[in-house]
Design a protein around this nucleic acid. Structure first.
Length: 259
DNA sequence: ATGGCTAGGCTCCCTAGA
């Protein structure tokens, strides 16, 4: 099963590029972030016609996550538990009914800039809630994957110019520590389980010729539960998507699971 | 390189992104 994450930076703006990538890459399941659309404005028929089940958790203008799946989805839930007052659409869960069912959590983790400040406080609180959710899922001892735009640069090797990020919410010590706490619960960064070393990025800014200069960062991740990590076959970044027509500033990252 | 693009909406400027 090919399972991907892709921050599309607006479904309306990616109405050509997303179907093009789907037809080319043929993922079985895709978690989308930043659909920037309400549920009733999401072009679900377009993806249903391509053979996908569609589940959205949208919001007007900003944020918004969705799942496209060729396999049936069950037990869909929306919103990250732990704060009833949080109205930002950043989390959606479902069980993919593969031969071996897999729980997936599609996430758009808050950016957090400027830091320090209320936006950074929200980011850290959100990460603490996510850690609680992971702990609850781990108790079940079943395969699950948390995939999406984490807005976390885990290590210096995950940025072309790490010195430029030292004061940034994506790379501050508290951010990386919160990410590391998730890994330390027993989750596996799928990409790093298959590829070591610098030079692997999933985001290039639209500004300042970042793509042309390969000034990127790796912030889109798939974290695997121990039972999911046992199924890992392959993990890759589709970097060439960034060179296409009207690209998102992120590219897809995916895994192949033996499920 | 001093935020230099891009997207969306309460659109001809503002916020937000990373």
């Amino acid at each position: 099963m090919k399972l991907a994450t892709f921050n599309i930076n607006g479904i309306k703006a990616r109405i050509d590029a997303l179907p093009r990538w789907l037809a080319d890459a043929k993922p079985d399941v895709v978690c989308l972030q930043e659909i920037k659309s309400q549920d009733d404005a999401f072009p679900r028929e377009m993806f249903e016609d391509m053979g996908y089940h569609v589940e959205t958790h949208g919001q007007k203008g900003f944020n918004g996550v969705a799942i496209l799946s060729r396999l049936p989805l069950e037990d869909v839930t929306r919103g990250l538990p732990g704060d009833a007052a949080d109205e930002q659409a950043r989390w959606i869960e479902a069980t993919v009914m593969a031969a071996r069912p897999i729980r997936i959590c599609g996430l758009y983790l808050p950016n957090g800039n400027p830091a320090p400040g209320p936006k950074y406080d929200y980011k850290l609180a959100w990460m603490a809630r996510m850690e609680d959710r992971i702990r609850a899922l781990l108790i079940l001892e079943e395969p699950f994957v948390c995939l999406g735009d984490y807005n976390v640069i885990p290590q210096a090797m995950d940025a072309a110019k790490p010195a430029a990020w030292t004061e940034d919410a994506l790379y501050l010590p508290d951010t990386r520590a919160a990410f590391r706490r998730m890994l330390n619960l027993g989750l596996t960064d799928a990409f790093r389980a298959r590829e070591q070393g610098p030079g692997h990025y999933s985001f290039w800014d639209y500004q300042a010729g970042a793509w042309e200069r390969n000034n990127g960062i790796r912030i889109d991740h798939l974290l695997l539960s121990p039972q999911a990590a046992d199924l890992l076959v392959e993990a890759r970044i589709d970097r060439e998507v960034r060179a296409g027509d009207k690209p998102s500033d992120h590219v897809p990252v995916w895994v192949e699971l033996a499920a």
